[in-house]
C-alpha cells in the first residue's frame, strides 16, 4: 500500500501552493485514475509518488516505510515502474533489448529471460520480428505496449502512468487500458494513471479528480 501523508507543494511562492495537506492511499490490485485541469499539478503529483522529485512538505510511505528511507534511486529501481505519454524507450535498441535492459537495471526476477519477454510481447500483438527491430520502427501504440510490458515484467509493484494514451487513437487506447487493468487485476500491481480522457478515467477502479487544489476520490 502506497500512502501519501500531509503532502503540500508549491513552485515559487509558498502562499500559492498547488495543493495542501494531501492524504491519499493506493492499494494493489486496483487501477486508480487521476483527472484534472491542465496545470493543476497532476504530473507534479506523479513525480512525487514515482520518486522523481520531493514535495515541499509531507511524506510518502510504501507499506509503512517512508520512501525517503528507501532512497529515491532504490525506490525507482525496485518499487515503481513508470509509463509516460511518449519517449519511454531507449531509441537505440530493439523492444526486446529495452525490456531486457530494464530487467537487468532493476535486477528483476525475470532478468535475462529472453523467451519470456518475447512471449509477453507476443501476447500484446508484438511479433518476434517486430520485437527485434529498433523500437523507433514500431508504431506509437506498439511502443506504449512495449512500455507496459516492461512495467509488467519488472518486479516493481507500483505502476505509474502519465497520459499513457495521450498520443493514441481510440482503438489503441482501449487496448492499452485493458493492459493496465490486467496489470492490476492479474499481476496484482497498484496502477495509477493520470489522464485527460474521461472515457479512460471511467475505466479505473478508483477515480480521483484534482479540482480547486483538492484531490477528490469519487
Amino acid at each position: 500500500m502506497l500512502t501519501v501523508k500531509n503532502l503540500t507543494h508549491w513552485y515559487g511562492q509558498a502562499d500559492k501552493p498547488l495543493y495542501e495537506n494531501v492524504d491519499l492511499s493506493f492499494d494493489s490490485d486496483k487501477v486508480y485514475t487521476i483527472v484534472g485541469a491542465s496545470g493543476s499539478g497532476k504530473t507534479t503529483f506523479l513525480s512525487f509518488i514515482a520518486g522523481l522529485d520531493k514535495p515541499q512538505k509531507g511524506d510518502i510511505f510504501l507499506d509503512g516505510k517512508n520512501i525517503k528511507k528507501i532512497g529515491a534511486t532504490n525506490y525507482r529501481k525496485h518499487k515503481v515502474a513508470i509509463v509516460f505519454q511518449q519517449y519511454n524507450l531507449l531509441t537505440y535498441m530493439s523492444a526486446l533489448d529495452n525490456i531486457l535492459t530494464a530487467l537487468s537495471v532493476t535486477d528483476s526476477g525475470h532478468k535475462g529471460e529472453k523467451q519470456y519477454v518475447l512471449d509477453s510481447l507476443k501476447s500484446v500483438g508484438i511479433e518476434e520480428a517486430d520485437a527485434k527491430k529498433n523500437v523507433q520502427k514500431l508504431s506509437g501504440g506498439q511502443q506504449q505496449r512495449v512500455a507496459i510490458i516492461r512495467a509488467m515484467l519488472v518486479d516493481a509493484n507500483i505502476v505509474i502512468a502519465d497520459e499513457p494514451t495521450g498520443n493514441l487513437d481510440g482503438e489503441n487506447s482501449a487496448m492499452i487500458i485493458k493492459l493496465f487493468q490486467d496489470l492490476a487485476h492479474e499481476h496484482h500491481k497498484t496502477v495509477i494513471i493520470v489522464t485527460h480522457d474521461p472515457k479512460i478515467a471511467d475505466q479505473g477502479d478508483v477515480k480521483i479528480s484534482l479540482e480547486d487544489r483538492e484531490f477528490v476520490v469519487a
Binding site: 514515482a50 519511454n88 524507450l89 531507449l90
Partner: peptide, 13 residues
C-alpha cells in the same frame, strides 16, 4: 536527455 531520463526512471544510477 530522454534516454538518460528513461534510465533514471528505471532506477539506473
Amino acid at each position: 536527455q530522454r534516454e538518460i531520463g528513461v534510465l533514471v526512471s528505471l532506477g539506473e544510477s
